[in-house]
Design a binder for these strands. Structure first.
Lengths: 128, 128
DNA sequence: CCGTATCCGCGCCGATACTG
DNA sequence: CAGTATCGGCGCGGATACGG
């Protein structure tokens, strides 16, 4: 397929949509944001990201390695040690993700309040 | 549940993770980013976001309305007209998403090149 | 035009067991 | 420690039909 100079995530067939899908996948954003603090081992990542399974962590890491957003560094030791680190591209993406995550975290109460208020409204409406 | 002053998306049980899930859902980011240009009708949104079905668009819009990120405005006309617009909170989220999307779109060639190069590497590795 | 309702297949993802 | 292999449920999401 022809790769345009600039992608368009709004088109279904654009490779940019593909990468966007990885980044906004269920675990993608959390993995990248977790690595903003610096290099982490597999088990450290797993501990930091609540609820992720080994399978999904491994799968997500492989996707991002393929996309060139992080690098995998393996040490010839026993027990084995593997570290993951953002590439320059990965850092750019992770920083933008972090801004998004940060805003949401800072406004949790406002968001939850909106949810509650909306529930109340729809209840009143359904009482005809 | 106790709502902390500041959320933590890395915890599995935090409401912030919940909203983060909506925003980074399959269609969430594209819907919010599409509304950055201003108010849009249902059919306009559907046309702009390649591949989305009516069902998923409606579902995504309802989630965000509940989260207080957008408002739904219905006009008493025939044929009916419904417009969707970002709230102040939605604008904040959408802008951050747009930065993320923009970077990916601007670097689509770099990303695709990384994917190709990685395929070549893993092919060589598997040839033992 | 703007949805909702229903069905249902596919693939995501968790659980478990196993390997180097 | 850092994974891979395999299985299976179930929910996401597409297709279709219908309603206001």
């Amino acid at each position: 397929m022809e790769i345009p100079e600039r992608g368009d995530c709004f088109r279904a067939d654009c490779p940019a949509r593909d990468v966007f899908g990885h980044v906004t996948g269920r675990w993608g954003g959390l993995v990248l944001a977790a690595l903003l603090g610096g290099t982490l081992r597999f088990s450290e990542l797993r501990a930091r990201i609540g609820g992720i399974s080994e399978k999904m962590l491994a799968q997500t890491l492989r996707e991002f390695e393929r996309d060139g957003l992080l690098i995998r560094r393996q040490f010839p030791e026993v027990p084995p040690r593997v570290e993951y680190e953002l590439t320059a591209a990965g850092l750019e993406v992770a920083q933008r993700l972090d801004h998004l995550i940060g805003w949401i975290q800072d406004h949790v109460r406002e968001l939850v309040a909106a949810q509650r208020s909306h529930e109340a409204t729809s209840r009143r409406a359904s009482l005809s």
